[in-house]
Every structure is written in C-alpha cells, then in structure tokens.
Write a protein that binds this DNA or RNA. Structure first.
Length: 679
DNA sequence: ATCGTCATTTGT
DNA sequence: CAAATGACGATC
C-alpha cells in the first residue's frame, strides 16, 4: 500500500503546531493542501542521509490520510532540503520542538514495520560507539524492501519447543548454570570455551532451544556459511528445525527478505546466520551468541565497521538478553570480559580437557630436529614426516597451510622475536627497497635496533611461503590422494579413507570420526606476522584444525611446526586457550594495546587528516601516533586511548566528523574504532 | 539540491 | 539609502 501526500503548504502559520487541530484552512483537503492528522500529527523521522551533522531525527507533519499507516517503524519518503529522501518513522508525537515550519510526510512507502524500537536504539548506540552515523548502521541492519515478498502469505508461527536436556553442557564448569539462566530469562553473560571436536554445533543448538523453551527469542552469529550450516543441521537433529531461520548472504534478495520478515513479524523466534544477522529484529530477545569471536569475518567491512561481539554486547544490555561469547579458543577481548567481572567463564575442567584433546607436539624447523633425504624430507622435520606417514595408515591426515599474501614483518635474526618500535611498541616493517626499517604505526625509523629479548641487533623478514611443502608432501606419498580445500574451492567434508587433506585456515573439511593426524605448517610465519593479534590468531587457527582430529588417548596426533617455547604453542600443546588469553590480555595491557586501550585508526589525505585532528578535542590521555603512509597517497594516524577515556575520545572524533561535513570539507577521513588488524 | 539570512556591492 | 547580488549555512 502506498498513499501519497502533498508538499508542505506555503502558508505562514503552519508552524510548530503546539495546538494541533485548531488550524482549518479555507480549502478542503482535496485541493492539495493536506490536513495534519488529529492524533499525534508529528512524526519523528530518521533520514537515510549519512552526513554526520545530520545524524538526528527530523520532524514532519502527518497528513490525515496517512495517519493510520505512518506508525513508528515504517519506511517513508520525505522532502529534505529540496529533494526526496528515504527515512523511517521512529515516533509519533503531539507537537514538535522545531521552531520553523514543518513539511508533510510525502509518502509512506509501505505499512510494514521494518525498524523496531529495539533496532533503532541499537543502531543509535552502535553509531555512537563507532563514531559513525545511525543511517550507516541502518543500512547494515534493515534489508532493502522487496514489495512482492511483503505481499506474500505470511509464515505461520510455530509453538515453542519443550526444554531440551542439559546434556553435554554438564561437561562444562558453570554449564548447567548457564543453561538454567537462559531458560529462566536471566541475562547471564558467559565467555565459553568449547571442548574440541564437533560437539559445539549441538551445544549452541541446545542454548538456542533452551531460550525458546523459556519463551524468549534467540540469535546466534557465526563467521561463515559452513559454520551456520553445521548449526542448522544440529538444530534439525534436535527437532528445532521449525523454529529458526537462516540469515546469510547466500539466497537472493527476495528469499532473504522473506526470512527476515518472518523474524520481524514474529513467526520465527530464533535466527542463526552470518555477520549481518547480528541486527535481526528477533522478538523478545532472550539470548545472543557469537561463535568464534576471534574470526575476522565478524568485523563488518562497511562503515562504521562494527564488530559482531561488540554489537551483541550492546544488544544484550539494551534488550536484557543473555550473551554467550563462544569458541574453541578465547580472545583477549573475551578474557577481558571475564576479568572485569562482566561475564562468567564457562570452560571444562582440566581433566575433561585432557581426556578429549588430541595429543599435540611441537617441532621447530631447525636443524637440531634432524632430517634425512632430499625434497620434502629436507623441508619437513622428522617428527612431522613420521606423524603423517603413520596417520595415513589409519585415515585422512589434515595439513594446514597458511593462506598466501600475509604482509611480511621483521623479526630478530637470533631469537625470532617480532621486532617492535622503541618509541610506541608498534610493529616494525621494511619499506620496499630494503631501506631502513620503520614503525608501521608511528613511522619512527629504527636506525639502531636491538632485540629486547636476546640483544641481537640484526633483523630478518618473516615471509610466508612454504605452502609448496604440501604439494611436495603429496609427491612423497604417491599412492595417497590429495584433497585441497581453500581459496575458491572449500570442501565441507572428506571421507574416512586415507588421504592428505591440504587446507588453509578456516577451510578445513570435517572428517567422519576425525582425522588420524594433522600437520600445522609454517607456524613461525603465523606467529611473527606484524599484527598485534598474530599469536592469538595462530592459536585460534591451530585449535580449529586440531579439534578435527580424533580425540582421546588412542586418538590422533597433531604436530605444529613452531617453537615449543612460544606461549601460543604451549597453549596448543596443553590445550589451554583460557590461560593463554589471560596472558595475552596482560601483555597487551602492558603495551597499552586493545582491549585494555582503545585504538582508533584515521585514514585520509594528509591535509584533511591534519584539519580533522586539529578540530578534534581529544582528551589529554589520547596518544596520536603517526602518520604512516597508506594506500592511494593517503596517510594513517592511530589514536590510542585508555579505556576509561575512550568514550570521550570517540565522542570528540565524532564531533570532528560533524564539523567536517557541516563545513562541506573536501577529501575524506575514515574513522575506524578498534580495527581488527593493526599493523 | 534549495531556501533563507545576512553582509556586501551597486545604482540612484 | 534602497535594491541587487553573493556567500554561507541549515536542511523539519
């Protein structure tokens, strides 16, 4: 349904209408001058205009004939500064505060209520947190309209399921507590470290079904489509297939909108999906889950670059929902939530972990490990070689190789510790052409570097490149089939027969009953990436691959090619991501890095950046690092600020964006709060 | 994009 | 000194 109103009348006293309904024009309303509605004639409208200084609501008069459909939540078209723009009604009120003349709502696009009060409030907070605008967030949160789909027969609602068994959650300390809280609608918050194996989809499914059984809605966000499919299967197996929808980028716009509408209309009370599902308008939300929060797919690449974990944190608070941050590993951010007392740690006791975790050994790529022969023998330590050969007698062997294309960093030649800047602790990089190394954050040149660990003075590049090892492995086992997963072709699963399964991180296929062994190659390169999350990320990828290996005492073997003394490697060998995350958090705090401090990256052309920073009234505690050169003749600054004054700094940067756009300044400045990759 | 405001220029 | 012009900022 579309009803069209007319433009604002040119008459002088269509003012703020402090007393509506008193005004009667001479002409009947058919003549082109609309009558304002008698009941709450003023609509507050969020405009789809992403200029920072216009990031607020604007008031419009509702014509009588639109009064019934112009409810909070509908899409509208309104005249704004001479042009028609899209927007959403977010409120209907008696009178406006606006001193000037109000224009009429031009048209109600559809009576469908697409922007719920909860999502409006969430979008506002997300915009504020990320120094962005609400319309930018709404573009991520509300899918484009598909008129034909709106007209279809609506889905019929389903009955909530009975309460499922606590079951495998009993293996976790505080697992039963968590399920109980979710069932009773208590907004519990947990950072959950899942046991290895393929049990997590069932465990997440039980969480969701428990929330439904308690009469509340539920939402789970996972990094990629394969993870969503696994959870989808688990829900079906537990008999919960009718209660949820899958929101991913896969289906076309019509199907996506159909599923989204089923959620919005309350016909489905649970949502599972990838990133964009974090904004799904679930009714009476009682539980939000983010799985594998360390995966960088959880970071939205469009402005204002919100992260799933952060959005769901805000959401759980706004909507009184329980929050579960889960994964096989644990991020420093997750550890920080536990440490601050905001969330509870849910993990299995050590003896349970030891029973189910595969046996992991580390082997350096140094000569002391001993090598024999030529070709792959020369490039692979004996232990790794033997593990693969023995594993292939019993089933498939997984070989994890890092994706090509990581930016090489610099490390100490002697002890291989990643080289950090003496001035700001940022990572050192080598400008092209092999010139003097310089900091990638603050651009200070490291003319005379010495290693703080071993006092070595020479640096070497830490390039990634040994993926060819996998091909050579294949040639070394001529009768064994080699399956490849990664890049364009990602396999969901492989058979139980012996095979070498070469996969890049995140693309590991599942093997029935688990792999007989896994080789995690190029550990050194992963660990010395010039990124503050390099170690955490390496462990996350290793745990993900190793958890696909047969568990228990007679289970599979895992070999990682990395220094056994490195904390991330020790955490893998001992299967103890919790302790590692605590350590990582403490280390980052010492270096004033996230999540202890907040980092905001500012990218743009040099003159815009200079004016922007001059206009930003940053707190005293903020450190401005840079500039360093970025792509397309741009520069980048990092603003580093302690958590306590982070909000003040972000507000200041948002205000500076407002000033910039109000003055119609040329050029652009991209503001990214807590970017995933720093370095 | 467009409209209104206010300062400045131009015409008598 | 009034009318015309233009720069600027808000935009309901």
């Amino acid at each position: 349904m579309t009803v069209t109103g007319t433009q604002a009348p040119g008459e002088p006293e269509q003012l703020a209408l402090l007393r509506p309904a008193v005004r009667r024009t001479r002409r009947p309303s058919s003549g082109g001058t609309p009558e304002p509605a008698t009941d709450r004639p003023v609509a507050r409208v969020v405009l789809d205009v992403s200029l920072p200084h216009l990031d607020r609501t604007f008031d419009y008069l509702v014509p009588t004939e639109l009064s019934d459909v112009a409810s909070p939540g509908v899409r509208v078209r309104v005249r704004f500064a001479g042009r028609l723009v899209d927007g959403y009604v977010v409120e209907r009120v008696e009178a406006s505060e606006h001193a000037g003349r109000l224009a009429f709502v031009h048209k109600v696009v559809s009576p469908e209520l697409v922007l719920t009060p909860a999502v409006h409030a969430l979008a506002r907070e997300v915009a504020d947190h990320y120094a962005g605008t609400e319309p930018d967030v709404l573009r991520l949160a509300v899918p484009p309209r598909h008129a034909r789909t709106e007209a279809l027969e609506p889905e019929t609602p389903t009955e909530p399921p009975l309460r499922p068994q606590v079951d495998s959650w009993a293996r976790y300390r505080d697992g039963a507590f968590l399920l109980d809280a979710v069932h009773h609608g208590t907004p519990a918050r947990a950072v959950w470290t899942s046991l290895p194996g393929s049990t997590w989809p069932g465990e997440v499914a039980r969480l969701l079904l428990t929330a439904l059984a308690g009469g509340r809605g539920a939402l789970a966000v996972l990094p990629d489509h394969r993870d969503v499919e696994r959870l989808d299967c688990a829900l079906s197996e537990l008999g919960g297939a009718d209660h949820h929808v899958v929101l991913t980028a896969e289906p076309g716009p019509a199907e996506r909108y159909r599923r989204w509408l089923a959620v919005r209309r309350g016909a489905r009370r649970a949502v599972i999906g990838t990133r964009a599902a974090m904004f799904a308008p679930v009714h009476d939300l009682g539980l939000v889950v983010v799985w594998d929060d360390g995966d960088d797919l959880h970071a939205e690449p469009r402005a204002p670059y919100p992260h799933v974990r952060t959005v769901l944190q805000l959401r759980s608070r706004l909507e009184g929902a329980a929050l579960v941050v889960g994964g096989l590993s644990r991020t420093a951010e997750g550890a920080a939530l536990v440490r601050s007392g905001w969330a509870r740690s849910v993990a299995a006791p050590r003896d349970v972990v030891r029973r189910v975790a595969p046996a992991v050994r580390a082997t350096g790529d140094d000569a002391d490990d001993g090598r024999d022969g030529r070709g792959v023998h020369a490039r692979l330590p004996t232990l790794a070689w033997r593990t693969a050969a023995e594993g292939l007698q019993h089933g498939p062997v997984l070989v994890q190789v890092p994706r090509a294309g990581y930016v090489p960093g610099l490390a100490c030649t002697r002890c291989r510790a990643p080289a950090r800047c003496a001035a700001c602790r940022g990572p050192l990089g080598s400008p092209s052409g092999g010139a003097t190394p310089a900091c990638r954050w603050c651009a200070v040149v490291a003319a005379s570097w010495s290693c703080p660990v071993c006092e070595g003075t020479r640096l070497r590049a830490t390039a990634v490149g040994a993926s060819r090892t996998a091909e050579e492995l294949g040639r070394a086992f001529p009768r064994i089939p080699v399956r490849s997963s990664g890049g364009g072709t990602v396999l969901a699963d492989v058979g139980p027969e012996p095979a070498l399964v070469v996969a890049t991180p995140g693309a590991e296929p599942v093997a029935p009953g688990g792999y007989a062994a896994a080789l995690l190659l190029d550990g050194w390169a992963l660990l010395s990436r010039p990124d503050l999350r390099a170690a955490e990320e390496a462990l996350r990828r290793w745990l993900a691959a190793a958890s696909l290996v047969r568990s228990g005492p007679d289970g599979g073997r895992v070999v990682v090619l990395a220094d056994a003394a490195h904390p991330a490697v020790q955490a893998l060998v001992r299967w103890d991501p919790g302790t590692f995350a605590d350590r990582e958090l403490a280390e980052r705090a010492e270096l004033s890095l996230p999540p202890d401090s907040r980092i905001v990256s500012l990218t743009g052309d040099p003159s815009s950046l200079a004016r922007f920073l001059a206009a930003a009234d940053l707190p005293e505690t903020a450190a401005v690092l840079g500039p360093v050169a970025a792509k397309d003749e741009q520069e980048r600054f990092l603003v580093r600020v302690p958590r306590a004054s982070a909000r003040q700094a972000v507000d200041a940067l948002r205000a500076a964006s407002g000033v910039r756009s109000a003055h119609k300044e040329s050029g652009s400045v991209r503001v990214q709060v807590d970017p995933m990759e720093v370095g």
